[in-house]
């Protein structure tokens, strides 16, 4: 599979002249995204996600490093005709209808008239915007309709790579699910999607690989299946015999122990079957009782929180 996006040592520094401070928004980022995959780009607010996307699109300029999109340098006009972008919280020209807006963007791609009309119809149908709204002013659209229009404008040039920045944020559950499905369906058409999102459940569902960025630094990248590997098991134990010594022995097996004061019990998390067996044996030997043993699948949210907290030293 060919590489759609290749980032080498991309760095962006901002200098606050007055405060004589340097802020590193993106720090020596190296990343590769393959053609045809939906790639999740995760990070807290201000982590450097949008800055990275803006550099790739030529909207801002890197302090150091380089990147190629579809084998060509970022910002190249030929590349721009093959990619598209949906920014976060975009205000469109709201005096226009969705149809006129797409017509305007189609003209920017120099798409000839008849073909442009065909693609506008196709894009609006794909995002499931009701036909009666096509010629209405965007000003009267709901948030969901605006986001559908936003994705439609990103599809007008039949792009090979799409950069979507929070495409499903702030939507009602139905619109959210529909738009997520639309994004997921792009993979079936062979498109590459670079998805920046805080909706980790969505990312887990539709992305094949993710990268976690924090304070401009890439912390982790990999296949979702690899990141989520290793079920955790929640074990709740109780008993008068759980002395301090037993507790210390339990901590030696797994440090992840939480007291459940209401039940006068302990909740432990084991990372594998051996740990689970060791905990159960220890509790039984100490005349305690095992109340429940529940296997938990790891979620992307847990992976994300653990990764970021570890970096922050929490």
């Amino acid at each position: 599979m060919a590489t759609a996006i290749s980032i080498q040592g991309l760095t962006k520094k901002y200098v606050d002249v007055w405060a004589k401070q340097e802020v590193i928004a993106v720090n020596n980022l190296n990343l590769e995204v393959q053609e045809g995959e939906i790639f999740g780009f995760l990070g807290r607010n201000g982590a450097g996600k949008t800055t990275t996307i803006k550099m790739l699109l030529g909207l801002i300029f890197p302090t150091a490093g380089d990147a190629t999109l579809l084998g060509k340098p970022m910002g190249d006009n030929v590349v721009k005709s093959m990619i598209s972008y949906l920014p976060e919280e975009t205000y469109f020209y709201d005096s226009m209808s969705a149809w006129d807006l797409l017509d305007f963007y189609g003209r920017l791609f120099r798409i000839p008239g008849a073909e442009r009309q065909r693609r506008i119809k196709l894009s609006l149908e794909k995002v499931r915007l009701q036909p009666e709204a096509w010629r209405r002013n965007i000003r009267g659209y709901s948030k969901g309709m605006r986001q559908r229009t936003g994705i439609a404008q990103a599809l007008i040039n039949d792009p090979k790579v799409l950069f979507l920045d929070e495409p499903t944020s702030g939507l009602d559950p139905i619109a959210h699910a529909e738009l997520r499905d639309i994004v997921a369906s792009l993979k079936d058409e062979g498109k590459t999607v670079f998805l920046s999102s805080h909706q980790l459940a969505d990312v887990e569902l539709i992305c094949s690989r993710v990268a976690i960025i924090h304070r401009g630094k890439l912390l982790r990248t990999g296949q979702i299946t690899d990141l989520l590997a290793g079920e955790r098991t929640e074990i709740v134990v109780k008993g008068a015999g759980l002395s301090n010594g037993t507790l210390q022995n339990l901590r030696a097996i797994t440090p992840d122990i939480e007291p459940l004061e209401e039940l006068q019990a302990l909740k432990l998390f084991s990372e594998d079957d051996n740990q689970t067996s060791a905990v159960i044996d220890l509790v039984r030997n100490a005349k305690g009782s095992v109340i429940s043993v529940v296997p938990h699948k790891r979620t992307l949210e847990q992976v994300f929180v653990e990764t970021v907290r570890k970096e922050e030293g929490l």
Partner: peptide, 14 residues
């Protein structure tokens, strides 16, 4: 301010 420039300059527009 409205970020509409992002959707324009990210297209093949000099």
């Amino acid at each position: 301010e409205r970020r509409t420039i992002y959707t324009v300059l990210s297209k093949p527009v000099q």
